[in-house]
């Protein structure tokens, strides 16, 4: 399995709205912490080392 880079999430607008709503009312440090927890939770769910390495690489390349 390789990292999916094409559209894979149905109704991503809805997810995006929920993501922002989850952050609402948090200060900057709390938002950073939430994002960190979220990444760890999703990484565990994905459970594929190669996919995660490629995702990290892609995120880093885009800096």
């Amino acid at each position: 399995m390789s990292l999916i880079e094409t559209d894979n999430l149905p109704d991503h607008d809805d997810f995006y709205a929920e993501l922002l709503a989850t952050h609402r009312g948090l200060n900057e440090a709390q938002s950073h912490a939430l994002n960190a927890r979220l990444i760890l939770i999703l990484a565990n769910h994905i459970g594929d080392r190669a996919v995660l390495s490629r995702a990290l690489e892609l995120a880093r390349e885009t800096v």
């Binding site: 094409t6 991503h12 607008d13 995006y16």
Partner: peptide, 15 residues
Amino acid sequence: QVLRLAGKVPFARGW
């Protein structure tokens, strides 16, 4: 960052 990714990864264009 959605805009940044959109220049690079197809999925983000739809976002």
